[in-house]
């Protein structure tokens, strides 16, 4: 019996030594045959010997043998993995196959751009105000200092619903509504749909989006208008952007200013640039100091308060920023167009 125990331990040591020397799957298979073969393996032959033992010795020896068998099996399995694992992965899976991306819906570029604009103004302490698209002549024109029958109205070609009701031609009526509803200080922007009686072409649409801005407080000056819009434009485009303010006319502002930014395409370097017509500048915003008559119309004393207002077309600005040649693309909702903007 002692002899049997020693031999089992000896086999274990021999096995461990042989396993350590095994270099590949083939040598492992040989080891497996030597020890575990059902016909002539080491374990099998030791098992044969048990028959001669006494019953109490038999069970002890059986346990020893079982331990050896388990040891060999376990070690062989572990070793097998070590040798075969890298090979099988390479054979089973082509890691160059495309991964599975999630189909994530894309925001509409107009909304994307609108939010970009909104966020810059929110960072400057502005809040967002909205108003109806169906407006009265009073809010759309008269309160904004467009006298009835004034040719200035021609620049805001209007879709009418009745004698008095129309589709707002700009977001400016919301200025009036805000000033009627609140006391200064007021610092708002107003995004929204506006309408013009225009036949669609690459640069005109009967409906588009605008963002309007209004600041009213004591001591607001043209310098504040410049400061606000310069910060806005530099944040929207880039810090070194060239900007110029030049005199213009809007019935509801006085003085009025048009804001140009340098042509993003030619940077003023190309006399024949199609985007800026060789001027080097691109008109981007209309603005001005709120006209004293407009303040009077909402019972704000222009001697005590002043303000500035501004407005811009969202599609037009996005077209310029991304070099989109045709405004109509925005409302075709072609997925190949819309989905481009997701990561921009």
């Amino acid at each position: 019996m002692k002899d049997f125990k020693a031999r089992v331990e000896d086999f274990k040591k021999k096995f461990d030594k042989a396993l350590a020397g095994a270099k590949d799957g083939k040598s492992l298979q040989e080891l497996r045959n030597t020890y575990l073969s059902r016909k002539k393996g080491v374990v099998k032959s030791l098992l044969e010997e048990l028959k001669a033992f006494k019953p109490e010795e038999k069970s002890k020896a059986g346990k020893m043998l079982n331990t050896l068998k388990n040891h060999v099996q376990k070690k062989l399995e572990t070793a097998q993995k070590k040798f075969t694992a890298p090979e099988t992965i390479e054979k089973k899976i082509d890691l160059t196959l495309p991964g599975e991306k999630k189909y994530w819906g894309a925001p509409h570029p107009v909304v994307l751009f609108q939010q970009k604009i909104e966020n810059i103004f929110i960072s400057m302490g502005f809040s967002i105000e909205e108003g109806p698209e169906i407006e009265t002549d009073y809010y759309n024109f008269e309160a904004l200092n467009f006298p009835p029958h004034h040719p200035a109205r021609d620049d805001w070609d209007t879709l009418y619903l009745s004698d008095d009701l129309l589709l707002r031609t700009h977001t400016s009526p919301v200025q009036i509504r805000a000033m009627e509803n609140r006391k200064p200080p007021i610092r708002i922007i107003v995004p929204g749909r506006v309408y013009r009686r225009e036949t669609p072409d690459p640069t005109h649409l009967p409906m588009f989006y605008q963002v309007e801005g209004l600041v009213v407080d004591k001591g607001i000056t043209f310098a504040h208008l410049k400061g606000t819009l310069e910060y806005f434009l530099k944040t929207l485009f880039y810090e070194k952007l060239k900007i110029r303010f030049r005199p213009s006319f809007f019935p509801f502002t006085e003085p009025s200013a048009e804001v140009d930014i340098e042509c993003l395409v030619c940077r003023g370097e190309d006399d024949k640039c199609r985007v800026c017509k060789g001027t080097g500048w691109k008109e981007i915003l209309g603005s001005g100091m709120v006209d004293p008559q407009v303040l009077k119309n909402v019972n704000i004393d222009p001697e005590k308060y002043s303000g500035f207002a501004f407005g811009m077309g969202i599609e037009r600005t996005a077209m310029f920023a991304f070099q989109i040649p045709d405004m109509r693309y925005f409302f075709e909702n072609d997925l190949r167009f819309i989905r481009q903007f997701t990561l921009k």
Binding site: Y103, W104, G105, P107, H108, V111, E133, M207, F330, I338
Partner: peptide
């Protein structure tokens, strides 16, 4: 968006 819907805007 998360459910795979793209955003459209159409004329009124």
């Amino acid at each position: 968006f998360n459910h795979g819907f793209d955003e459209a805007l159409n004329f009124s």
